[in-house]
Design a protein around this nucleic acid. Structure first.
Length: 892
DNA sequence: AGCTAGACTTGGGGTTATTAGG
DNA sequence: CCTAATAACCCCAAGTCTAGCT
């Protein structure tokens, strides 16, 4: 279905954009999907249909894959495991991965989990695969799906149904292909996965059959497309949309195949995940064994191991992810899923990369409002005025109370003013006129009609549209931050030594662009200027960078958005690593526990530090320069940050990342308490608690315990395992609302563990007292109702209301009902107040975004029929599209 | 072995959009 | 419908960690 439409296509390119543009325009969802798919790959549209078909095939594929299955019932895929072998020959790796096929048994097609699995499984995998069937299907079946809650989709039943229906259709269209192909397909896909990156080479090397498949799948198409992209600069985007047709034509050979049948879409290896989970065990075992050896063995050995992992990890990339998206709508979520190109090779992050560079903030427009110096208006040049305005506008912030801020500002501003300027100090400056002007501008903006605002917004959109997308390996992906940071006064957090300094304007000459070799170089948007440098480095993911004007040693990067395949993949790898820790944590804990008494002071410090990182989820604590705020993490804790409270408690008090205060008193095992005592002895308050330790030593040690293990993995691990445990322990039967409360409660525990705080909103107190007031009012009402009830029972008329009016004569029954209603209202308000007070300093969002494996949440939602969108907002859904088809039984 | 540049993740706050309350 | 509260999203600072160099 979709396919057909896609072909039609003529959807204006705009549409495509829209589609992708996530959120905003859903309406086109259907189309979008199509377009979307198209965009991703030329072949894609056709593919969609195919993909469905594949599903059916899946079973057959399974058969093929059976070998895989043999390996482990569970999934085979775990690339990671494979890695070792991989290390040997990268190419092979990829292939292996592809096998992703996991599978499920070939059970019947009954819709159930099996189907789902199949879906995911399915297939073939091509690296480039596009979207996953599941979503697509859904969309196809119902355009409106977009609007519908994901939950529906997620739910097995729905999902299955859709799938099935789709399948049928697909099958009807071209069953044969599916069936036959599988065997062939599988291999082919695999290869693709690996080779996908180098089309040319791969083709040559690949077996013919594989190649054919590729073409059929469309992957081949994709490649082709990619190549073309190089040509025109902008075209790429458009191309993606329109391309297919053109492509087909252009590409002679391909077209037919793609168009016609074959479909096989590329599917992704979605299932990989599941497989991984399952599979992993075996792998894990292996790993453990290895690790064990390592630990015992010399460091060298361990080191080697680590490397292996890394290499292996890379292969992961291939796996695809799946996308949730629905289809077209993919627009909303990520778009494609594609797989990752990176093949086994070590570092390659992409093969083709096309984008339009970055957009600059508009030039300064002078307002001409004169500030005062010693009460007299002062003339300023536009440059001077711009900086004065930056300062004037910050009048209401806390920075204005800080001398450091003012000093730094004055130093930089004075350079612009010059020594002999009328303005000789900051103290006698009066920025009020500028401040007032700014306030009135703000007010004007506010007063604009919604219509005007809308127009303005659309104009901006139009301007920025071309910068919002990049095409990575033929797939259109959202760019994260394509806007160059505007000039301003540096707002460092905490007592930052550089606060208030002028962050100068960034110009094209500051910016290095990274782009595919064949891609058109983005036109410099500022006439007469040019980019600093153009690079074609496919071992990194950034599209552009410039050096931070405040600290030239630092870079500011432009990356793809969180919803992109590239980011999704690394996100998934992060969680897989954390899950791996689950298998090692027992040994790690017993190992450090033993070392609490170690005579070797370095070992003792490592043990205690690891304990704190594990138990308290502290950050590693890198060394910091003097020109940064003075904050600490585990390795940089000072003696004064830890207070012993006999007999066995430790009180922590320090400023962590972002100068957020960490205050916590915890009971610890006696050996730890004593170790701290020992570490503090003979040291001054400002000395390092762990004077023999730094993050590199600590991480080096951790890597001996588990491949790839670093300090931050513990945070991810503890956060996710906590969520998983709490959800599974506390979820009871009940309505959705109650289940959500359970989720939020678990989420809150995680936030507390990670010390994710937020500042109390300015209006918090006001809001609380307002609530209290309302409760009081209700209490009064309640009292009155009770009085009236008494009177009514005695046949007396109601009491006079407070304002003296007479009330209606109500029956006791009615009054009783009102009383219970009021009581319920009061209780609810009290509960709300409690949660509000409870959460006033806790930020739930950070852990959701960074620490909680989304698969835990998705699986839980599926199991308990909670619509996923009740937990994840649109951004999160897009970011976690790779996790959406997780098996409901998934456990972290 | 230690150092540093580089690259990428994590984080809170401010702003804007959406929903709730009246 | 209008205002207030809440949620979503953007911004960019501040961490972590790796790799390559000496």
């Amino acid at each position: 279905m979709a396919v057909e439409t896609s072909d039609k296509p003529n959807l204006p390119r705009d549409f495509d954009d829209d589609d992708e543009a996530p959120l905003i325009y859903k309406r086109y969802s259907t189309k979008k999907n199509q377009s979307h798919s198209e965009a991703r790959k030329s072949s894609s549209h056709t593919l969609d249909g195919q993909s469905y078909r594949q599903m059916p095939n899946a079973p057959s594929s399974n058969g093929q894959t059976s070998s895989v299955q043999k390996g482990n019932t569970a999934p085979s895929l775990k690339p990671s495991t494979m890695k070792p072998s991989v290390g040997i020959s990268k190419a092979s790796n990829s292939v292996v991965n592809t096998s992703s096929v996991k599978l499920p048994v070939a059970n019947s097609k009954s819709p159930s989990l099996a189907d789902k699995q199949k879906m995911s499984i399915d297939v073939k995998v091509e690296p480039e695969s596009i979207e996953r069937g599941g979503k697509i299907l859904c969309e196809d079946s119902e355009d409106d799906d977009d609007d519908k809650p994901l939950s529906c989709r997620l739910k097995n039943s729905n999902y299955d149904k859709k799938v099935m229906s789709v399948v049928k259709k697909s099958s009807e269209e071209s069953e044969d292909d599916d069936n036959v192909p599988l065997s062939k397909k599988l291999p082919g896909t695999f290869n693709l996965g690996t080779t996908s990156t180098n089309h040319d080479d791969s083709d040559q090397k690949k077996p013919i059959s594989k190649i054919q498949k590729e073409r059929e799948n469309g992957s081949g198409m994709r490649n082709k497309q990619d190549r073309p992209s190089p040509m025109p600069a902008k075209r790429p985007l458009d191309n993606s949309n329109s391309l297919q047709p053109s492509v087909k034509k252009s590409k002679v050979s391909v077209p037919d195949a793609s168009i016609k049948t074959k479909p096989v879409s590329e599917k992704r290896e979605m299932k990989l995940e599941d497989d991984d989970d399952n599979v992993p065990i075996s792998q894990r075992i292996k790993k453990q064994a290895m690790s064990g050896d390592k630990s015992s063995s010399t460091k060298k050995v361990s080191a080697k191991v680590t490397k292996v992992n890394k290499s292996s990890s890379k292969p992961f990339k291939k796996q695809t992810k799946k996308t949730v998206k629905k289809s077209g709508s993919g627009s909303e979520y990520s778009k494609s899923t594609k797989l990752l190109p990176s093949s086994g090779d070590g570092q390659k992050k992409w093969t083709t990369l096309v984008h339009n560079g970055v957009i600059f903030p508009p030039p300064y427009q002078r307002h001409g409002i004169k500030m005062l110096f010693k009460g007299r208006p002062v003339d300023l040049t536009p440059e001077q005025e711009e900086v004065a305005t930056m300062y004037a506008v910050m009048r209401d912030t806390e920075y204005m109370q800080k001398d450091k801020f003012k000093d730094n500002f004055w130093n930089d501003w004075r350079k612009l003013l010059g020594r002999n300027h009328v303005i000789q100090n900051l103290k006698d400056c009066d920025f009020t006129p500028i401040y007032d002007w700014y306030q009135s501008e703000k007010e004007k903006k506010k007063q604009m009609t919604t219509e005007e605002k809308k127009t303005l917004k659309e104009e901006k959109m139009k301007q920025e549209e071309k910068y919002m997308w990049a095409i990575v390996d033929g797939v259109k992906e959202k760019v994260g931050n394509f806007r160059v940071e505007p000039p301003g006064l540096f707002r460092g957090r905490g007592e930052h030594p550089k606060m208030g300094k002028l962050k100068r304007r960034i110009r094209p000459g500051d910016i290095t662009i990274n782009i595919g070799k064949d891609a058109p170089i983005p036109e410099c948007p500022i006439p007469g200027e040019k980019w600093k440098e153009i690079r074609h480095d496919n071992t990194v993911t950034w599209l552009a960078y410039w050096s931070d004007p405040i600290n030239p040693k630092l870079f500011k990067y432009v990356f793809l958005a969180a919803s992109s395949s590239l980011k999704g993949q690394s996100d998934k790898e992060k969680y897989e690593k954390a899950r791996m820790l689950k298998d090692y944590i027992g040994n790690i804990r017993s190992a450090y526990t033993k070392d609490f008494n170690n005579k070797d002071i370095t070992k003792l410090q490592i043990a205690v530090a690891t304990y704190l990182i594990d138990k308290l989820a502290l950050r590693a604590g890198n060394e910091k320069d003097d020109d940064e705020a003075d904050t600490v993490g585990c390795c940089t804790l000072k003696v004064e940050n830890v207070t012993r409270e006999p007999p066995n408690k430790l009180k922590f008090n320090f400023l962590g990342k972002d100068s957020i205060k960490y205050e916590n008193t915890v009971e610890v095992e006696l050996p730890v308490y004593n170790a701290i005592l020992k570490l503090q002895k003979d040291k001054r308050p400002g000395d390092d608690l762990f004077d023999k330790l730094d993050t590199s030593k600590l991480n080096a040690h951790l890597k001996e315990l588990m491949p790839g293990l670093t300090a931050k993995v513990f945070r991810t691990f503890n956060a996710s395992i906590t969520l998983d445990n709490m959800l599974n322990k506390e979820t009871k039967d009940g309505d959705v609302g109650e289940k959500i409360v359970v989720y939020q409660h678990a989420n809150k525990q995680v936030a507390i563990i990670c010390n994710h705080q937020r500042s109390v909103s300015k209006s918090h107190d006001a809001q609380m007292s307002k609530l209290t007031e309302k409760i009081d009012e209700l209490q009064a009402v309640l009292k009155e109702l009770k009085t009236d009830l008494d009177r009514a029972r005695k046949g007396k008329p109601p009491s006079k209301s407070s304002d003296g009016k007479t009330k209606k004569n109500l029956t006791p029954e009615v009054l009783e009902k009102k009383i219970s209603q009021t009581n319920a209202k009061i209780e609810k308000m009290q509960r709300d107040m409690k949660t509000k007070e409870d959460l006033k300093t806790v930020a739930l969002g950070t852990s959701k975004i960074n620490y909680l494996d989304p698969r835990i949440t998705v699986a839980w939602c599926k199991r308990h029929e909670v619509p996923i969108e009740k937990i994840f907002n649109k951004s999160l859904l897009a970011k976690f599209c790779w996790a959406m088809d997780v098996d409901p039984d998934f456990r972290f």
